[in-house]
Amino acid sequence: MSVDKETVRRVARLARIAFPEERLEPMAGELNRILAWVEQLNAVDTSMVEPMTSVVKVSLKMREDAVTDGAKAPEVVRNAPSGEDNYFAVPKVVE
């Protein structure tokens, strides 16, 4: 499984990170080195092994259905780079 320039472009797009053209090729090289290194896992036969689903052996904690939070719009939007009337604002989105 080798990563090429186009794969880096696609993955960077999925991850929403702008990548200048000249960095695609070097990044493909870096990813390939790391992926080649992690592929040593293939030496282990894991056909009879379950993947780990949780590190701690406890059951999922649940809360009761009660309103205990909210009513703090000013704090929610306080750190926003842009907004109005307790809304967040982004460039117009076309659906």
């Binding site: 929610v76 842009s82 907004g83 109005e84 009337d85 809304y87 967040f88 604002a89 982004v90 460039p91 117009k92 989105v93 659906e95």
Partner: peptide, 14 residues
């Protein structure tokens, strides 16, 4: 997302 509150911005209500 509200698209009709501002000419070139969308507002987000969570």
């Amino acid at each position: 997302s509200l698209h009709d509150q501002h000419p070139d911005q969308s507002f987000v209500d969570l």
